[in-house]
Design a protein around this nucleic acid. Structure first.
Lengths: 216, 216, 216, 216
DNA sequence: TATGAATGAGTCTTCATTCAT
DNA sequence: TATGAATGAAGACTCATTCAT
């Protein structure tokens, strides 16, 4: 009769990014990776504990030795995703020349890489974030706010220095950040466009949007 | 103990856009509007028939006098959303001067308006689309493809005429279309930014991204 | 939202009575004492092996080194409770003057003391007894029958000797025994009423109920 | 291997007492009566929704059209039990001659009848009460307090008038009330002892315990 | 059009228990 | 003795849906 729901993304090998602090190991890691793939392709609410267990060739009850509840799995993925994202942004920022244009370029480049290299995680972080309770979402929300502030700050310094002339800073910042969020929906890692090409292009697009005097 | 999931968007009054063909009336319309609000704020899979019925002050079984199944409600919303979107794009295109720059401006302007004026519908169309079976999604998919083709065609004509110099046409097109999809996540209708401001800004941003010689 | 179930008794320090034969030691004893407290306050069926283990700061599987199964813990408590009860009754009976009135007084006094000094054990013995299979309950049942017979025998001798004139021997015996069973539900050890006061009062009440000629 | 748990009482036909206000009807009534039998014989925590549904020849989910949750069924039984009990006590009190002895006799007689005629309900009310949250137990607790106060008040008036000379009023009141609570554990309705015999005997036992000058 | 009662499959989670270490 | 990981059955409850009224 009716066809099953489709996957929301093209990518199929869900990897966890390396994180500084205590990377998960063993079964806990396998659960996270499998959940990542399922949550990304079908959504948190459309993935049951049974689906997850069966993909892991485990009984549902076995999962509860590793996570207290289904939403704790999501919360952990969201936390990992935000940490990897924030660390990448910080590293990029620190490696950039101290000009607003270079900082924006570096931030957008890193933002894009993270989304392109970990499209499942990016999708889960962006779309399933709202399935978490405020409590479980809080650590991620804090990082999210800090990351946004980094970019906004660079933009505002660029404007103050006469380097940027965005039509509307708020709208432009949203558009720049949004380019990253959209990546998992169309970009295929290993496909015709290289991650590096995408990252460089997004960085230059951001500068164009900002009307950067030294833009592409 | 734990807080309930948050809403994905700020908007709270879910209106259906006027459509050319057979606008829904009476209870059927109420169901669609209420489902729109719920599907947008919590997602299709996290909204039960009971939630929907209770928001309507109706018993669950009463809904089946109006829709054959839960996914038919979503399919109808997705259809309405795509039709309104496509009609807006067509009208805009026909009203534009026959230059690629003006056509892109008109298309992006219309694309933005639709997303900003109907954020719930935009969200449902973009995020819950994948919950539909291929069969139920097919009519919407056709319109989606046609709309994308309109924009891509204008871009390619602009490039052929030397009006546009995008860094990477594919990536740029994705970025332009993506600006619209992100609107429901941050834009607040009735908030500090007017819809018209947003639409004009996005249109000019698109031309900047394309490196339009007559850009803003 | 909703409040947790309440405890059935006021007492909170669950002690095991000294028993003649092989008192439990070490972890086995800790398990019994903790189980006693939990079974008494929340009931056997509402206490999980996990609850028990967690109260003991042990992992659930560790309990199985000490008891073959959950119901063996209960069976052991029930056995201990019945043995302590029966021993107390026997000792009291042997120490009493050989008159029915004095024997009843001694039996009720001892019966009351046991219930007042070990309210958790009394509760578990009386209310959770039925959770045991016939096999596991059998040793306790035998002691229970013997204890009842001791009291009934004294009453009947008292009647035969014209010392007692109960309205209805069967009903009266049930009422006398029942006074003890109720103790854990209202009596607070260490509270305003001393155990000895309670025991003496119950003993005299029993004689009043029997219409003892030498009663209070 | 092991024998199943035994029933806590002998009675097998669980009837609901008539109540003044809105007696339950149809399936709701059947659920209550069947739950009453199961909760009484095996306890609330040892009776699953599946057990209940299967005894009713219904699917578990069907129960949720009538009760919001398992504990609501218990709460309703507890409420009905307390209301029937309190109404019986009030009626008895109003029909008694205005002397403490007659009032105590009437109250204990009614208290006993209720327990003897509805042993399952008495058991559930007394033993499963603690499985309810404070919220759900509150209405019953209020009636319980009022009923106890009625008896205590009569006892105290009797003492003030020199009619009663209890050894210890508090202990004696507990013993009198406790006679009723024990009934379901040993009394068999339709057995050798008539309900009326039991009620009269308990009433006279109470007066004996109080040392009533006009007692039996 | 709407309802109340019911269903069968499914939800997440907990249960007592086992077993290799 | 104690643990961590696992299991299979069962826990209460919700799901979308049907159907007689």
């Amino acid at each position: 009769m009716s066809t099953s729901p489709r996957s929301r993304l093209r990518a199929t090998d869900a990897r966890l990014p390396p994180t500084a602090a205590a990377p998960p190991e063993g079964t806990r890691r396998r659960i996270l990776e499998t959940a990542l793939q399922l949550f990304a392709s079908r959504g948190y609410h459309d993935t049951s504990i049974r689906d997850l267990a069966s993909a892991l060739e485990l009984r549902p009850s076995a999962l509860y030795a590793h996570f207290a509840a289904k939403d704790h799995v999501l919360a952990e993925l969201v936390r990992i995703g935000h940490e990897a994202h924030f660390e990448a942004l910080e590293t990029a920022f620190q490696g950039a020349k101290p000009t607003p244009a270079d900082q924006v370029r570096a931030l957008v480049h890193a933002h894009t890489r993270v989304h392109a290299e970990h499209p499942q995680l990016a999708l889960v972080v962006n779309e399933e974030f709202y399935a978490l309770s405020l409590e479980l979402a809080a650590p991620a929300q804090a990082l999210r706010d800090k990351a946004n502030a980094m970019l906004l700050d660079a933009i505002q310094r660029g404007m103050a220095q006469g380097q940027f002339s965005p039509l509307h800073p708020h709208i432009t910042a949203a558009a720049i950040v949004g380019m990253g969020s959209r990546i998992p929906h169309w970009f295929e890692p290993g496909g015709p466009i290289a991650v590096e090409t995408l990252a460089k292009t997004h960085a230059e697009l951001a500068l164009r949007m900002l009307g950067s005097v030294s833009g592409a």
